[in-house]
Design a protein around this nucleic acid. Structure first.
Length: 274
DNA sequence: CGGAAGACCTGAAGGC
DNA sequence: TGCCTTCAGGTCTTCC
């Protein structure tokens, strides 16, 4: 479910946890992404430390402590990271809980596509999940020159290029369609076809789409909520995603849905030129 | 190299 | 009410 704007929204709403001491940890023992179970022994080592910051790299969150380790979290499709009162009933599919006195930081994830790990901060970028990430689309910004350079010689479709986390970290399925619509580019166009001008347009479109979604607190189509349980408003502002059969907001043509690499893709057949 | 298809999972929604 | 199919903000692997 969560792309950069949603993960960043979670990060921002987690700041009340900063300063809290981790008094206990618990995990369900269930396997998450790639059948990996949360590393119980490493989680236990977080006990006694205080949360000093919550950072985000691409779609990953890092909960820093005053020890040498950080908690690494990926929300997958249905993951939630929320602050609850310790007395609140635990949601179904809760898989990791950090006890923070009268509060708890809880990770729940019905589909279990998320990831939980503990990393040594001094070597965090060597973690396999983080080592492959390109520049962060928000923190680092989308450098149009570098973006264009990365597209040289690439036969991949633009949709795949934009989703490639090693090119740019943070863009997911919704905002890929949104950015390509905004840049007036067809999702199936090959990346090497980008001109300097169209690459710049796409780079700017990605930045704007992400900034707007973030302002709206993210897109809640199904599962996404922030750390306080609040939904985002951005679903009301989508131009193409989930709008198949409806008029293009630019030219009134009928928006189409196709499937690219197994994923729903939305575009305007008229104003997004092949 | 790239793309399609399948894998990992659960639950909501729609058709009958 | 139930049963069945389809679909879902993400990776990762395998096969062509």
């Amino acid at each position: 479910m969560p792309e950069l704007p949603e993960v960043e929204t979670v990060r921002r709403t987690l700041t009340p946890a900063i300063g809290a001491r981790i008094a206990s940890v618990w995990d369900s023992g269930k396997g998450l992404h790639m059948a990996r179970t949360p590393p119980r022994a490493a989680l236990k080592k977080l006990i006694g430390s205080r949360i000093t910051a919550v950072r985000r790299i691409g779609k990953y969150l890092l909960v820093d402590t005053d020890g040498e380790r950080s908690l690494l979290v990926h929300l997958g499709m249905t993951g939630r990271l929320r602050i609850h009162k310790a007395a609140d009933v635990r949601a179904n599919h809760t898989h990791v809980v950090l006890g923070l006195g009268d509060r708890e930081l809880r990770f729940s994830d019905p589909r279990r596509f998320g990831q939980i790990d503990v990393v040594k901060r001094s070597a965090e970028r060597e973690h396999p999940a983080l080592s492959i990430l390109g520049p962060d689309a928000l923190t680092d910004g989308v450098d149009p020159v570098a973006f264009h350079a990365r597209s040289r010689g690439k036969k991949a479709m633009l949709k795949a290029f934009v989703l490639d986390q090693s090119v740019l970290a943070g863009v997911g399925n919704i905002y890929a369609s949104e950015a390509l619509w905004r840049a007036k580019l067809r999702p199936t166009t090959r990346a090497h076809k980008l001109t300097v001008e169209s690459a710049h347009r796409l780079a700017l479109a990605i930045s704007e789409v992400i900034a707007n979604a973030l302002e709206n607190g993210g897109t809640s189509l199904r599962d996404f909520v922030d750390a306080d349980g609040a939904e985002g408003e951005n679903a009301d502002y989508l131009w193409v995603y989930d709008r198949a059969g409806q008029p293009c907001l630019r030219c009134k043509s009928v928006i189409r849905r196709s499937v690219l690499q197994g994923r729903a893709t939305f575009y305007c057949p008229t104003c997004q030129k092949p």
